[in-house]
Design a protein around this nucleic acid. Structure first.
Length: 151
DNA sequence: GCCAACGTTGGC
DNA sequence: GCCAACGTTGGC
């Protein structure tokens, strides 16, 4: 069982949207390293849900991998902003898993707070300059952040 | 294969 | 809105 974190802009697709939809295609990721992580996700893996580009950026809840990654349909959709001319049916470039809502934290575990915890010094998210939208999370970090959400 | 120019992300 | 930190593109 692995752990992950995904970022989403709150006003684009928030955890409340995921709660409403229950399950969603995590599509539109167009970064190779992030794609590779998406393909590593196994059914049942737990995922921290992060809101970026908002008033209080931070971890807002937990999701779960409902389906392992498959070719992202939006890469073939000419009307989609995620359309990729170089993607073919034989050689898809982009993949998306399905993510399922698990629960929303009572309060946001703010990026600011994460930064103040010495045990999270090596947490990829807070390492300077990491703009990846999908990253693995160490089990210890995952548990610690869940614990921070309870307080 | 190098690298400058450009585009995107995301905190502040 | 600014800007640092990257990733990507494309000329050479």
């Amino acid at each position: 069982m692995k752990h992950w974190i995904v970022k989403s802009e709150e006003d684009v697709y928030s955890i409340d949207d995921l709660k409403r939809d229950k399950v969603t295609h995590w599509d539109g990721v167009r970064n190779y390293q992030a794609r590779n992580y998406l393909r590593e996700m196994a059914k049942g893996d737990t995922v921290l849900y992060y809101h970026s580009n908002c008033e209080t950026p931070g971890v807002v809840g937990v999701a779960r991998v409902a389906k392992t990654a498959y070719p992202d349909p939006s890469q073939y959709d000419k009307k989609s902003e995620y359309f990729d001319q170089k993607a073919t049916l034989d050689a898809p470039r982009w993949f998306c898993p399905d993510l399922q809502y698990v629960h929303k934290f009572k309060s946001v575990v703010a990026l600011e707070d994460l930064k103040s915890v010495p045990a999270l010094k090596e947490f990829q998210l807070i390492k300077r300059g990491n703009r990846l939208s999908v990253m693995p999370v160490a089990a210890a970090h995952f548990r610690l952040i869940e614990k921070m959400a309870e307080n």
